[in-house]
Simulated scan of single mutants.
Amino acid sequence: MESLETELEQARDLSVAELADAIESIGFECTRCGACCKANDPADGDGETEPHTATLFPDEARQLQKATEEDFEEAYDWRDVARPMPYGLSEGEDGPEGETFEWAIQTDACGDCTFYEEAEDGTGACGVHDSRPLVCRTYPFSVALGGTSEPMGEAVDREGLVRAHECEGLGRDISRAEAEELAAALKERAVRELEEAISLRDRYEPRSDVNGVVVHDSEGAKRPDGTPLEER
């Protein structure tokens, strides 16, 4: 298994042109179906839906806060835009507890992304489209390098290092300019994910002594409201 540092060098050496070639070969056009922004239905059709979980870098959470200051009537605080990734957490007597290693975009009461908007005709839109995180900018694609994430399930297609995940927009024509823009964002995301993973690994110290939820990210251990653990 390659080290994270080796994978990072490979990510930095990725050719945007070659990534764009792969994206063109697979094909993609967003149909605004909203599936990637909504709660996930269980694979077997039974049980409850699972809240939307799109990963969020710490600086992207702050970027979303800034976007709400500029575009919304009321600025959002950290908890309005980000929540602890639920994986690794358990339900204690006083609510969720444990340690997790990522942030997810906040969800609404239905489990959909809090910024998802749906028109009367059923088409979806993003309320912070220009400030959306890299995982949203690059969906339904990911890069097949260790240490990078696979959004919403396993890949359904692959061309070289580019994986395509389930989406009704796959297989549609995409212009070269759009493919290159998507490819550049895909490379940026791969690099960022590996940089975050390395920084998190180097900073991580178990905090089982803390009640409630602790989120470890590249900036250190934090409370669910985004404040550093040691500030309290």
Rank of each mutant, 00 (worst) to 15 (best):
D202S: 02
G98W: 06
G88F: 08
N211L: 14
A67Y: 14
V162K: 02
P51M: 07
A221V: 13
E99H: 08
D121Q: 04
L19D: 09
A183P: 01
P151C: 09
Y139S: 04
R176C: 03
A20W: 09
A43P: 14
E159G: 05
D80T: 15
V162F: 02
R201N: 08
S3K: 07
A75R: 15
P151A: 08
E7I: 01
T148P: 01
G147E: 05
S131E: 12
D112A: 04
A11T: 00
R158A: 11
C30D: 10
A144F: 08
D13R: 15
A22N: 09
R83V: 15
V191A: 02
R207L: 12
E73A: 13
E231M: 12
T53P: 00
E188C: 10
S3P: 00
E230H: 05
A104D: 03
A82R: 07
R79S: 15
E117H: 06
E178I: 11
A39H: 14
G153T: 06
R232K: 12
A185L: 07
K66P: 06
P86N: 02
D41Y: 11
L194R: 01
Y87S: 13
Q63D: 09
G147T: 00
V128E: 08
S149F: 13
L145W: 01
Q10H: 09
A11K: 02
E102T: 04
E102K: 10
E5H: 10
E150N: 14
G45E: 05
D77R: 15
L64H: 06
E50H: 10
G34F: 01
P151F: 07
R79A: 12
I174Y: 03
E118G: 06
R207F: 05
R132T: 04
R12Y: 02
D130W: 08
D108T: 01
P96W: 00
Q65I: 13
A164P: 01
R12H: 10
G146D: 07
A119H: 11
G160D: 11
E168M: 14
G153E: 07
D71P: 13
D209W: 05
A184T: 15
F141E: 05
E60P: 13
L161K: 09
K66V: 15
R163A: 09
D80P: 14
D217M: 12
P151L: 11
F141Y: 05
E74K: 15
G146V: 10
L8M: 04
Q106N: 14
C30S: 11
H52Y: 11
E193I: 05
Y87D: 13
D77L: 11
